[in-house]
């Protein structure tokens, strides 16, 4: 499959807005109606890990994603921000076909992982998900021991030859998730007994235990307190050395802290994507500017 880059000329100068931006509060309604037009910024990359072209997602008759094209580079942390219901989580769930579990959901467009079509008929979602892991909004440890939680994927996929190897993988994953020292004496206690932040790190340990290539994170800290959040953010930065990470977040500060690139979604469309610094310092689209300056969101 060849990538049709010419079809996606990113027009930096012409943002087709019809709204003046002297914005008072009463203009908010107008702002939300603003025409979005083509994606602004640098959506496409050379040598990317994931290439998405012309993605459209429908829930029944309702279209949740409108023609989004976006690349995610190797070992980068891509943050996706935007107001609630803007489609960022839906987009994220397309990347490991988690939307398959929703019967009314229909996905169109091309999604390539290392040039391989994710939605190809021959693509096995089981194999895909072992390569593209996911961490969820609410920590969801299985009702098993901490050890069994981390060993879950390893056992499923038969990645450990024996108990010693399994022990080693579990310990390594817990260490990398920064959890080992806290739980090393309680490995056989239930994972559900941990605190929220610990549970989320357990879920991250569980994900990295099967050594995926990409990790998707869907607002991983929204249910956590600030200290637990800081620990997770630190962890994300560490993990980016090895993995490609796409993170959906509600918090612009978090996006600014952890990501290399930031994509701004609005009403199912990708409005702007660029290096994180430029998005937050010199947003090019008025909608992005409105959002990061806190006029709505």
């Amino acid at each position: 499959m060849t990538l049709d880059k010419t079809a996606l000329v990113v027009d930096n100068n012409n943002n087709s807005t019809e709204v003046n931006l002297t914005g008072s509060a009463s203009d908010t309604a107008d702002m939300l109606d603003m025409t979005i037009g083509e994606t602004v910024g640098k959506a496409l990359l050379e040598d990317a890990k994931l290439n998405v072209r012309h993605a459209n997602v429908f829930y029944g008759d309702k279209q949740a994603i409108h023609d989004i094209s976006l690349d995610i580079g190797k070992n980068e942390v891509l943050a996706m921000i935007g107001p609630s219901g803007c489609g960022k989580s839906t987009f994220l769930r397309c990347l490991n076909r988690m939307n398959d579990t929703i019967p009314i959901c229909r996905v169109e467009g091309s999604f390539l992982l290392d040039g391989e079509d994710i939605y190809d008929r021959r693509q096995d979602p089981v194999l895909l998900r072992s390569r593209v892991g996911m961490v969820f909004q609410k920590p969801n440890p299985f009702p098993k021991s901490i050890y069994d939680n981390v060993a879950y994927g390893v056992r499923l996929h038969g990645l450990a030859k024996n108990r010693a190897e399994l022990d080693e993988i579990v310990e390594k994953s817990l260490r990398r998730a920064g959890l080992f020292n806290e739980v090393k004496d309680d490995l056989h206690k239930p994972g559900t007994g941990l605190s929220g932040g610990q549970q989320q790190r357990l879920c991250i340990a569980r994900t990295i235990a099967i050594d995926p290539e990409v990790i998707l994170m869907d607002e991983p800290t929204s249910a956590l307190d600030p200290i637990a959040t800081a620990l997770i953010e630190e962890l994300i930065t560490e993990l980016s050395e090895k993995y490609t990470i796409a993170i959906v977040t509600h918090s612009m500060q978090q996006a600014a802290r952890v990501s290399n690139r930031t994509a701004y979604f609005h009403m199912g469309k990708l409005v702007e994507v660029n290096d994180t610094d430029s998005v937050f310092t010199t947003p090019q689209h008025p909608l992005t500017e409105n959002y990061i300056t806190g006029r709505f969101g």
Partner: peptide, 27 residues
């Protein structure tokens, strides 16, 4: 059984039956 447990298991690359046997039934 909350959907997020199923999602967690699917996201690990478990098949449906593996999810049922190892996550849903124990829960």
């Amino acid at each position: 059984v909350p959907q997020i447990l199923r999602d967690g298991s699917y996201a690990m690359g478990a098949t449906k039956s593996e999810t049922i046997k190892q996550v849903i039934i124990p829960a």
